[in-house]
Amino acid sequence: MTSGNLLTDDPRLYEARFPDPERLAGRWAEDCLRRHGAGSRVLDLGCGTGRDAAHLHAAGRRVVGADLSEAMLAHARVHHPGPRYVRGDLRGFALGEGVFDAVVCLDSALLNCHGNDDLDGCLASCRRALAPGGVLVAEMRNGAYFLGREALLARPVVNRFAWQGTSYRSTTTLYVDRAAQLLRRTRVWSADDGRRPVEQHSAWRLLLPQELRYFLTVHGFSVLALHDGPGPRTEPPWREGDLPGTAADADRLHVVARLDA
């Protein structure tokens, strides 16, 4: 068995496993930006394959997509052109001061900030990059959802999908590392094409709603919305015209914050 990340090492496979033909995440982000009057200059932080960045570009935004994965950036430049794509670590980046009107951080990218120093570094970088009054839009797993839900962690979960004639199988096990405040994941991928199985290890910060509010406030942001849904990955998913909720009980968390002038 080898180690690695089967999906992020092959962005085409990633998009096949997580299709978004309706560009729901990008549309939700654009709706948040419009709703809160954000300007046209947008940083998509943790842009991945570039699908959401390209949607925001098509909506008339001037978009920079930043990601740590060179494979993802190379894919984005070819398959989702329009934005400018650059390599950047969300835990601390320098892309200019006051050069963006909004920062968008989707699909739990913010939770790669495992420690408080990481999260401080990310928010401090966002603060520097944003013009006064700029908007931060983020969407992620809700750390509060996993409190007391041991049944979610008690058994491996198996998923299967097929792409280009090959069948893939993943076995995923989650557990909570309480000391580090992380949700850790072990995932083993296998395929029917004879390749060796791949074992992947990853983790997300278990960030609680009021904890997130505190970090944003410390870094000079005013929280405009903080809720569990609707959003691009909720059930039911967000649709045009939906207004943000007020609860924070479900498995996703959405936040919109404005940098104080």
Rank of each mutant, 00 (worst) to 15 (best):
R160K: 13
L152M: 12
G148M: 03
L110A: 09
G121D: 00
L111Q: 11
D117T: 14
D117L: 13
A131Y: 01
G96H: 04
T166Y: 09
P156S: 13
R128H: 10
V103W: 00
A109D: 12
D118N: 10
Q181L: 08
C113F: 00
L95R: 05
V86K: 08
Q164T: 11
Y168F: 13
Y168I: 04
V176I: 11
C122M: 15
P132K: 06
G88K: 06
H114P: 06
A138W: 08
D107M: 14
E97K: 14
N159R: 15
P81K: 03
V104D: 05
D118M: 06
A94K: 09
Y175M: 10
G133M: 06
P81A: 04
D120P: 08
N142R: 03
Q164H: 15
L183F: 07
R141C: 07
R84V: 14
L110W: 00
L147F: 11
L106H: 00
Y168A: 01
A162L: 13
L90T: 00
N112E: 11
L95Y: 01
L110C: 02
R160E: 14
V104A: 06
R169V: 12
N112A: 11
L153I: 09
L90I: 13
A138G: 12
V104P: 01
H80C: 11
A102P: 08
D118H: 09
D120Y: 00
S170T: 13
C126Q: 10
P132N: 09
F161Q: 03
D120K: 01
L111W: 00
V176D: 11
P81H: 09
L182C: 03
G98A: 09
